[in-house]
Design a protein around this nucleic acid. Structure first.
Length: 479
RNA sequence: GGGUCUGUGGUCUAGCUUGGUUAGGAUUCGAGGUUUGGGACCUUGCUGCCCCGGUUCAAAUCCGGGCAGACCCA
C-alpha cells in the first residue's frame, strides 16, 4: 500500500455535503488539495487509478466506434483562437495566456477547449469527400481562469482527464447518426460503469454554440439537491465548418461545408459517482470502476498466524483466477483500523479471514454498499463474481430511485418554488418561448432552467403564458 | 462581478478581544515493546504561528497588501 494514500483523517458527516466532499476525497486518497494554486489539485495514485479505469473504458468504446485518439498541442496560437470571436470573447478574460522568454512575449493561450487547436487542422485535412468522416478524440487537460469558487473535479482551473470527441462528416444524416452513437456511449458510462441514472436534457438553442443545430446535456443530481452538468453532446451543424473553413469538394466539384459533432466529459463522471453513493464513512465505489474490488483482511491472533495466512493464500489464488482485483492488508494493526481504512476508500467487498473462519472453512464478506454480511464457504468463492454484479445493480436501482423521486411535476409557480426549495427538480410545461423560459428560470434565487425533457411529450399549459405547450422544462439550483 | 468570514506541526484545535515566560492539547507520523473479530495500550522521538511589509523595546496576537480556502448574493 502506498503511504500517501492513507491519511487517517476523520471526515465530516455527509449532511454537510460541501465539507464531506472535500474531506472524503482527501481521506480516501483520491487527491491532495493542498497544492497552493487555486483550482488545481494533485491526483494521488489511488484516485488516478479510478480515473484510469474510466479512461481505459472510454478508450475501448471509442475505438470500437471507429473514433481514434489523437493529440493536439496545449498551447493554441492566438490567431486560431480569434477565428471564433464569440468563443474567444469568453476566454480572453477567463483564459490563461502563455508568455515565454525574458521579454515576456505572449506565445498563445492554454487550451480552454480543444476546438481552436483542432478545427484549423481539420480544415487542412479536408479536401474531398474521401477525407471524411474524420473521427478523433483526445484525453487532455484544459485550463480556465475561473473566478468563481472552485471545487475539485467539479470546477477547476486545470480540468484534468477530459475527453473531447470531434467528428466531421459529409452529410447531415451521417453526423446525426454519429451523435446517436455518442449518446449510446454516454449512456453506457452512466448505467454500466457508474451505476448512475441517465438524465439527459435538450439544451435550448440559445444556450448552444452559436449557429449550431442543438445539444444534449447530461446532468447529475447532487446530494445537496443541486444539479451538475455532466457531459454534453453537440450537433454543431455547419456552424464551425463555416468559421474554420472545413470544406470538401462534392461529386459535382462544388465546395461544401462539413457537418460536425462534438462530445465531451471527464472527471465529473467520478465526482457524480462519489457524491451519489458515499456515506459518513467515506466513499462507496461502484464495483466496475473500483480499482480494488475486494480487500482481504487477515485477523491475526498470536500463535494462529500460520493457519490464517494459509487460508489467505488459497483465497488470493481463487480471486486471481476469477479476475477479481483485490488487495491483502497484512499490516500488524488492529482489524478495526483496517476496516476504516478500506471503507473510506470505498472498496465494494471486505473479506475477513480469522481463526474462526479457518476452523469453519468459511470467510466473512461485508458489502460496503448495503452493509450486508455474508458467510461464504471456501468452495463457493465463485459467488463473489456474481455478487459484484448484484452490487452494481443494487446501486443503479438506488440512484435511479433517488432521481425519479426528485423530479416533481408542477403546474403552478407556487408548487415550483416549493419543489426547488425542498431540493427537488421541478418539471413544468413550457411553450418554447425564450421569454417564458427566462421568467420561469428566475422564479427563485439561484434557480436555473437547465433544459427540456427528451421523452415523448403530452400537451399542457406553459407555466408562464398559459399557451398550449409540448415541451417540459426542468428547473433546479445548479452547480 | 459584489459582499462576509477564515488561515497556528501532516490533520483538528487552544491562545488573539487587552502585544510580553519555553505557543498548550488531541490525533497522525518514526522507533521500541505488549497486542489484534470495529479506529488497542505503554515508553520515547520529530515536526508549527500562510507570505511580504508596517507599528512597537517587543507581534501568532494590532494595521496594510498578497496568496489560499469557506460561505452568501448577482
Amino acid at each position: 500500500m502506498i503511504k500517501q494514500d492513507s491519511t487517517y483523517e476523520k471526515i465530516s458527516s455527509k449532511s454537510d455535503f460541501s465539507k464531506w466532499y472535500n474531506d472524503a476525497l482527501s481521506a480516501a486518497g483520491i487527491l491532495d488539495q493542498r497544492y497552493e494554486m487555486k483550482g488545481m489539485i494533485v491526483w494521488l495514485p489511488y484516485g488516478l487509478s479510478i480515473m484510469k479505469s474510466l479512461i481505459n473504458k472510454w478508450d475501448e468504446l471509442f475505438s470500437k466506434n471507429g473514433i481514434k485518439e489523437a493529440y493536439f498541442p496545449q498551447i493554441v496560437p492566438i490567431k486560431y483562437c480569434e477565428i471564433n470571436e464569440s468563443w474567444w470573447e469568453g476566454f480572453k478574460t477567463e483564459g490563461y495566456k502563455v508568455i515565454a522568454g525574458s521579454e515576456g512575449e505572449i506565445q498563445g493561450a492554454l487550451r480552454p477547449t480543444g476546438e481552436p487547436a483542432i478545427y484549423p487542422m481539420f480544415s487542412m485535412w479536408t479536401r474531398s469527400a474521401n477525407d471524411l468522416p474524420i473521427k478523433i478524440y483526445q484525453t487532455v487537460n484544459s485550463f480556465r481562469y475561473e473566478t468563481k469558487q472552485t471545487r475539485p473535479l467539479i470546477r477547476a482551473r486545470e480540468i484534468t482527464h477530459w475527453f473531447e470527441i470531434h467528428t466531421a462528416h459529409s452529410t447531415k444524416q451521417e453526423a446525426e447518426n454519429e451523435l446517436k452513437a455518442h449518446l449510446k456511449i454516454m449512456d453506457y458510462f452512466y448505467e454500466e460503469m457508474l451505476a448512475l441514472p441517465i438524465f439527459m436534457v435538450n439544451k435550448p438553442i440559445w444556450d448552444c454554440f452559436p449557429g449550431s443545430v442543438g445539444a444534449f446535456e447530461y446532468y447529475s443530481l447532487m446530494p445537496d439537491g443541486k444539479v451538475m452538468e455532466n457531459g454534453s453532446a453537440n450537433n454543431l451543424g455547419q456552424a464551425y465548418a463555416k468559421k474554420f473553413e472545413i470544406k470538401y469538394k462534392n461529386d459535382k466539384g462544388l465546395e461544401e461545408y462539413a457537418w460536425m459533432i462534438c462530445t465531451g466529459n471527464g472527471a465529473r463522471f467520478l465526482a457524480a459517482a462519489i457524491s451519489e453513493f458515499g456515506d459518513d464513512k467515506g466513499l462507496i465505489l461502484p464495483p466496475r470502476i473500483a480499482p480494488i474490488q475486494a480487500t482481504i483482511i487477515p485477523i491475526i491472533f498470536k500463535g494462529k498466524e500460520k493457519k490464517v495466512f494459509e487460508q489467505v493464500k488459497k483465497m488470493q489464488k481463487e480471486l486471481s483466477k476469477m479476475g477479481i482485483k483485490y488487495e491483502t492488508d497484512s499490516r500488524s494493526i488492529s482489524p478495526g483500523r483496517k476496516y476504516y481504512d478500506w471503507e473510506v476508500k470505498g472498496i465494494p467487498l471486505r473479506i475477513d479471514v480469522g481463526p474462526k473462519d479457518v476452523d469453519s472453512k468459511k470467510c466473512l464478506i461485508t458489502i460496503r454498499f448495503s452493509k450486508e454480511k455474508l458467510s461464504i464457504k471456501l468452495n463457493e468463492l465463485k459467488k463473489i463474481k456474481g455478487l459484484l454484479d448484484k452490487i452494481h445493480e443494487d446501486m443503479l436501482k438506488s440512484s435511479r430511485k433517488r432521481l425519479h423521486e426528485s423530479i416533481i411535476f408542477t403546474s403552478s409557480k407556487k408548487d415550483l418554488i416549493k419543489a426547488v426549495d425542498s431540493k427537488k427538480i421541478a418539471k413544468v410545461y413550457w411553450c418554447g418561448n425564450k421569454d417564458c423560459y427566462d421568467k420561469i428560470s428566475s422564479l427563485g434565487e439561484g434557480y436555473e432552467g437547465f433544459g427540456t425533457s427528451t421523452d415523448s411529450k403530452g400537451a399542457g399549459k406553459c407555466l408562464n403564458c398559459q399557451k398550449t405547450s409540448y415541451e417540459e422544462l426542468f428547473i433546479a439550483k445548479s452547480y
